[in-house]
C-alpha cells in the first residue's frame, strides 16, 4: 500500500479549526457556570476533538491501514482501563457499607 499524501489545503483547514477551538475553550473557561461540571465537560470535549483532528489528519491516521487505527484505539482504551478501574475503587467507597467511609 503506497503512502497517501495529504494536501496542504487539508492541513490549513485543520489548523484553522484547531486555533478556533483554542479560542473557544479559552473564553468558555472564563464563564462561571452554575454547575462547575459544565466547564469541565466543555473543556474536555474541545480537547478530545482537537486531539482527534491532530491524530486523524496531521498524523495521517485517517489514511492509514486498519492496524494503525487499532493501535491508536488500544492506547487510549488502556488508558481508560487504568483510570476507570482505579476510580471504581475510590468512587464506590462513598457508597461502601463499611461504616465511617462516607
Amino acid at each position: 500500500m503506497a503512502e497517501h499524501i495529504v494536501s496542504r489545503k487539508v492541513y490549513f483547514v485543520i489548523f484553522g479549526a484547531l486555533i478556533f477551538m483554542t479560542v473557544v475553550t479559552y473564553f468558555a473557561a472564563q464563564i462561571h457556570f452554575q454547575r462547575e461540571a459544565i466547564n469541565t465537560i466543555i473543556a474536555l470535549a474541545i480537547a478530545v476533538t482537537k486531539a482527534t483532528l491532530v491524530i486523524l489528519y496531521f498524523m495521517h491516521v485517517r489514511y492509514s491501514p486498519r492496524l494503525t487505527w487499532v493501535v491508536v484505539t488500544a492506547g487510549f482504551f488502556w488508558l481508560a482501563i487504568m483510570i476507570v478501574l482505579t476510580l471504581s475503587d475510590y468512587l464506590t467507597r462513598t457508597q461502601s457499607a463499611m461504616p465511617g467511609i462516607k
Binding site: 479559552y26 473557561a29 472564563q30 462561571h32 457556570f33 462547575e36 473543556a43 480537547a47
Partner: peptide
C-alpha cells in the same frame, strides 16, 4: 494539559 491544568480555575 492546557484545559486540565490551566482552565480548571479560570472562572
Amino acid at each position: 494539559l492546557f484545559p486540565l491544568l490551566y482552565l480548571l480555575g479560570a472562572n
